[in-house]
Design a protein around this nucleic acid. Structure first.
Lengths: 357, 357
DNA sequence: CCCATATATGCTCAAGTTGAGCATAAAACC
DNA sequence: GGTTTTATGCTCAACTTGAGCATATATGGG
């Protein structure tokens, strides 16, 4: 049985063990040498559009490491960790981002380290590549980025993740039917049941609610079922590859890293005051709500949202009012940066409501 | 101002940038080559003792990479990732653990990837080493481990983390006074205030409650203040190095990885059903509570704990009763593994109470 | 100027959750 | 049989959450 929190896999001996008590570092250098890629999912919000920074390359990339079919497909800012040039992983990431996007990162946190990137790096014979993914947040979305860099609406890559107005039609029209076929291709019995259940858990259905935090699980399921471009790219055409693959693709495993970032951010929003990294210095409560909704992809109950935010102690009014709201003017607030040092630091709690606020 | 959730650091140009649009992988191999260490914090519980698997080495380790002063000091099971031998990071970890401890890992999750290990690896001139830390959970604590491996009470490494009976005396006797001196060594003004506040936040004090999840923050503060062995080992003696350093040391950065594991596990306990990985197939509710208390280091309210667990749907009774409890016999339960597939999956919620149950 | 329409903001209410403790049950030990 | 120990049932007040009603104050059109 699979485990949603972690992998249960018997430790098969892939080659012969060493003798007890040896120093594991004594293995020869050639066997232990790898390259480490640093990848940034940089997130911002413009009005009600969640944005991710992408980079395209002007040269034609031809070596095996760069992915054979990825020319022209944009990706996240990234570059190799260079031990002699970078003091830490973190600072290496910041340098690459600055060079490629002209953005000076503020908030950045490590997401995950991926060791298996499908198969695209297994030929070419060069050293194995490992990706360290980061999530970065910024409010500088109107600065001009470098020529090859640009902000993109993240729902272009994940159209099934935006439930703010309605359930995305692609779910009923494409995804759920394709996942049913995917399950049917397994032989009848526990495996088929398990696949069906997994699909229902990830994408919701009769009785199972949509969980906006499961972005990564959903992407990985679509990849496994061969419904995203990257699956065919990495493993050859699949039985059910649709004519119009789901969402826009990215280079390498960058869409997976973005999915990881979205999951983490949607989760963290609820228990840490991270939204404010995405806000301008002052804002109205409704602007704050729109940003939370943009990130989480669901609508919130307005009065309860303000009740929560006001009670939390995370913000204070500036005294100004904003009259550009289209209705009664709204009070402007600022984030109380001091609370980052207080024990109370809660995040922005919310629970989804059925459209309409 | 520091940020408790992530690092805010300006991206200083540590060396000259490349031209726009270049393929970052084209940097020469020598500049981008590193070694990756896989490290496992394997956790189990015996009665009410939280255990971590440690390994000692019988040979004298002499090369710079292994840490100059670490001979004889035990550490976590670890070994380098070997691309030709290991299919994934995960499977590499499992192999090393099997070889060094004779344990077949079940649940394992990645914790964090550390790129800067203090300074102990900066000389020697070999390739830079990066550590990927994992948290693993097991209930096989009574199996005999390999000769050089052994289970140790994790509070031997973190004596200030066990609040089950009383506030650990070392806090009032050693830690808090030393941290006050550490803050005083900063010049008067915002920096000193900030240090004082950070100490109070980490270790609690007037009005600020103990937060059992901040294990890593506390360890890092003690390291910075020079109060743990590893600080003197990595950076030379500090002004305030105590005669009796705090807790037992570990090799390399292994105590930091263990602290990360403890933080993650204490947090995750509350929202994912991970405790059950530490339990035998059947157990009484009080046995379950003792394990949660062992891990979290705080006492829980017994009636409320059972109310929560029963309501959660995570367990079902087996029909058996356990008569070895010292009092009225207790019903035995088993974990309903099915719930790992259900949407409801909550963790084990609790909040600390002031000793006494 | 008045009205329709927007958004902002205050307030209530029922249902559920949480923290704490009282009370009783059923073993073991003497 | 009484004491001790743990198990388990139950209550109660305080607080939180989800939902919606009502009022306030802008804007724009006639």
């Amino acid at each position: 049985m699979s485990h949603p929190n972690a992998k249960h896999r018997p430790a098969s001996r892939e080659s012969s063990p060493r003798e007890q008590g040896a120093n594991p570092w004594e293995a020869s250098a050639a066997e232990t040498t790898v390259k480490v890629g640093l990848n940034a999912a940089i997130v911002g919000v413009d009005e009600d559009k969640p944005l991710v920074m992408t980079v395209r390359y002007d040269e034609t990339v031809s070596n095996a490491e760069a992915g054979r079919e990825d020319q022209g497909i944009p990706g996240l800012p990234f570059g190799p960790f260079e031990p002699h040039r970078h003091r830490t992983l973190d600072s290496g990431l910041r340098q690459w981002v600055a060079e490629q996007t002209d953005l000076q990162l503020g908030y950045a946190e490590q997401l995950y380290t991926f060791g298996d990137r499908g198969r695209e790096f297994e030929f070419g014979g060069g050293p194995r590549i490992i990706s360290v993914g980061y999530l970065a947040l910024t409010n500088r979305v109107s600065d001009d980025p470098a020529p090859l860099a640009s902000w993109e609406d993240w729902y272009r890559y994940f159209p099934w993740e935006d439930w703010r107005d309605t359930e995305p039609p692609v779910l009923a029209e494409v995804i759920r039917p394709a996942l049913i076929r995917w399950a049917e291709r397994a032989e009848m019995g526990p495996e088929r049941d398990h696949k069906r259940e997994r699909a229902a858990l990830c994408f919701g259905s009769d009785g199972i609610a949509w969980d906006e935090e499961k972005v990564l699980d959903r992407y990985e399921l679509l990849y496994e079922a061969g419904l995203v471009y990257e699956a065919a790219r990495d493993r050859g055409p699949r039985p059910d590859t649709p004519e119009r693959p789901l969402g826009l693709p990215m280079r390498f495993d960058h869409r997976r890293i973005l999915a990881t970032a979205m999951s983490r951010l949607r989760g963290k929003l609820k228990y840490r005051p991270v939204v404010f990294e995405l806000m301008p210095p002052t804002f109205t409560l409704f602007e704050l709500q729109r940003v939370v909704e943009a990130i989480s992809g669901v609508r919130l109950h307005k009065q309860n949202f303000r009740r929560f935010v006001e009670k939390s102690g995370l913000v204070e009014t500036t005294g100004d009012i904003s009259t550009q709201t289209g209705g009664r003017p709204a009070a402007r607030y600022r984030f109380r940066r001091e609370v980052l040092l207080e024990r109370l630091s809660a995040g922005v709690r919310f629970s989804a409501t059925i459209s309409k606020r």
